[in-house]
Amino acid sequence: MKYAIFVVLALLLAAIAVANPFILEPAGFLAFVKRAAPLVILAAGQYFVIVSGEFDLSVGSLVTVEVVVAARLIDGNEAATWPVLALLIALGLLVGLVNGVVTALLRVPSFITTLGMMLILSGAVFLWTGGAPRGALSQSFRVFGRDTLWAVLITLAVGAAAVLLTRATYGRTLIATGDNERAAALSGVRVARARILAFVISGLAAAIAGIMLGGFAGVSAQVGQGLEFSAITAVVLGGVALGGGRGSVVAAMGGALTLEAMFTLLNLYGISGALEYTVQGVIIVAAVAAGAVQLPRLFITPRKGDAHAS
């Protein structure tokens, strides 16, 4: 049940293979993974935030910021690649830190915090570049998103790190926090710190996804548009509950792959661009409804009064 999303993914891949057997070949499959890589990485980051009971709406604009900043600073200069990469990572971490501190310590709902961050980021970056992205990426920068081997390796590394993190002490306490904040706090968990770190992870994931998308899709002001919703959708498709405490990061990344497979399939069958959104919307709501309808019955909590039988 936990990994039901992979059954869906397999079915979608099979359906793709019927029309286009290339995807069954290693090269074809890897190309598919490369295309999905940024979303998979964003979903992995978003997973940590959602499982702790919060949202991160700022990742889309953070991706745009990363790409635009990279292009302006590198401006075709190969030598600048590595310092800029370090700076981009630092930027992602910083944005996550601010999101986390405002949400966990100042207690602003994360929806608002990250919405504000979204406005601030997109405003600030274009303020800095004067309205339109300028400059160019270097070849050695573009390789991460464009070269299949690099893209797949990075995705695998991020995936492995995410899995290890969810199994580590931090991940377990974070999930427990999302499930029952009070019980976690009364067990000595530093709840605020755990949440802040979740936002930092999400920021880091957005930085990595931005670096890859810059290589893959090139520099534009729209590169990150809507990615926050795609990432949240992917995570939810993977069976991770909004509100926290439930779901696995592997399934969240599976949700991202499934979303990408769905796009591919819809393209293949000529429902290009346009109606694919419609189909996507219906599937997402249906998937969540299917999950929700059975949940409340399993999850029986006693009425308030019962705990105080006198």
Partner: peptide, 11 residues
């Protein structure tokens, strides 16, 4: 109150 304060029930 075990459920509200003691356990993360879905873990």
């Amino acid at each position: 109150d075990r459920k509200a304060e003691g356990l993360a029930l879905r873990q």
